[in-house]
Structures are given as structure tokens and as C-alpha cells.
């Protein structure tokens, strides 16, 4: 059990998908303008991550053991299918959210966090439970990074920033500072 907790904590803070492993940056830059949207995007991401983790475990166990060279192709097809389903569900359940997420919802398919999770889970040989813990931790970490970023950006909107610094360059500098802060969590493990 403590193994699962460590995988969760490690995925959330120490090797945070966005700030330490650079996965899912497009969405990170695209939908981190408002806290509410960021939260929902994080939730949608986490949902897809968990589904992917389950699907990847199943694929690895029953299909890909025979044909490991098909890994990348099989994963991407499954992910594309899953995202399509999630998209249909959200469109039906919450049209407002569907509009807010816009292009970034189908783009979860090409969100490297999802494929990255699939590859890392396979490389590390996680079991079903470990995979889900990893996906939940990764999703939580991603949401945390999105919300932190959105909170800072909402404030920056009101600040008197020089003209040349408005836009994506500044966002990267902020992300760098956040990433520096998250490096502090690396100490969690040497202590353990």
C-alpha cells in the first residue's frame, strides 16, 4: 500500500508531469488563463489518464506481449479512441465546458502527458494498481500545475507588465520559477 502512495506522491510533486517532465505543455500554455477552466481541463486530463492507464495495462498484458514493436501505434490508436469518447460525453453532459475547452479537448490526444504516461508505465512495468496510482498522481500534479499557473496569470493580467514581456515569453519565465519551486520536492525521496 505504501508503495502506491509513494507512486502517487512522486508523480504529483517530485516528477510533476508538467513542471519536471515537460509533458502536456501545449495545454498548459493554452488553458491556463483562467482558474475555473484550468481546473476543468485538469479533471478531463486526469480522467483520460486513468482510462489510458487501464487500457495500456490491458494491452500490455494481453496483446502487446506478442508484438512489442506495435506499442506506439497501438497506444496512440487507443488514446485517440478514448479521447473521442470523453469528448462525446462532455459534449452531452456539459455543453458549456465543451465550448470552454474548445480545441484543447480533442488535443488531449496529442497531449504528450497521455502517451508519456503509457510509455513510462510500460517501461517501469507497473501493475494495474500502480498504474492507476501513477495516473491519478500525474493527473493531480498536472491539475495542480495548471491551477497554480492560472492563478498567477490572472494576477499578471492586472499587473503593469512592459509591452514586450506580454505573452508567452513571460509565461515560460513564470513556469521556470514554478519548476524551480517544485524541485524542492525532490528532497522528499532522499529523506525517505
Amino acid at each position: 500500500m505504501s508503495g502506491l502512495v509513494w507512486i502517487f506522491v512522486s508523480a504529483m510533486f517530485v516528477s510533476n508531469f508538467t513542471l519536471a517532465m515537460f509533458l502536456g505543455l501545449c495545454a498548459f500554455l493554452g488553458v491556463s488563463g483562467k482558474i475555473a477552466t484550468a481546473l476543468r481541463m485538469g479533471a478531463a486530463d486526469t480522467f483520460v489518464l486513468v482510462l489510458t492507464s487501464l487500457a495500456v495495462w490491458f494491452l500490455n498484458k494481453f496483446v502487446l506481449a506478442e508484438a512489442p514493436y506495435l506499442r506506439v501505434i497501438a497506444f496512440i490508436v487507443v488514446i485517440a479512441g478514448l479521447v473521442q469518447i470523453v469528448e462525446m460525453i462532455i459534449k452531452k453532459a456539459s455543453p458549456t465546458l465543451f465550448r470552454e475547452l474548445g480545441i484543447y479537448l480533442p488535443l488531449i490526444t496529442t497531449n504528450c502527458a497521455v502517451l508519456g504516461l503509457a510509455m513510462i508505465q510500460t517501461n517501469k512495468g507497473y501493475t494495474l494498481g500502480e498504474g492507476v496510482a501513477f495516473a491519478l498522481g500525474g493527473g493531480a500534479g498536472l491539475t495542480l500545475a495548471l491551477v497554480l499557473m492560472a492563478s498567477i496569470r490572472e494576477e499578471v493580467e492586472l499587473a503593469d507588465v512592459p509591452e514586450f514581456a506580454r505573452g508567452v515569453g513571460l509565461v515560460f519565465i513564470i513556469a521556470g520559477s514554478l519548476s524551480l519551486a517544485f524541485m524542492g520536492f525532490a528532497g522528499l525521496f532522499s529523506a525517505a
Binding site: 514586450f164 515569453g169 521556470g176 519548476s179
Partner: peptide, 21 residues
């Protein structure tokens, strides 16, 4: 380390924008 990536790209983008402005 990871923060260096963000800071380097951010600085390059800022320089380009600065020249453009």
C-alpha cells in the same frame, strides 16, 4: 535541470518579442 529549460526558452522568446516591439 527542468527549470533551465523553461527559463532559456522564455528568455529567447522575450528577446525576440523585444526586438519585434
Amino acid at each position: 535541470l527542468p527549470p533551465g529549460g523553461f527559463l532559456t526558452l522564455g528568455t529567447i522568446l522575450l528577446l525576440i518579442k523585444w526586438k519585434k516591439v
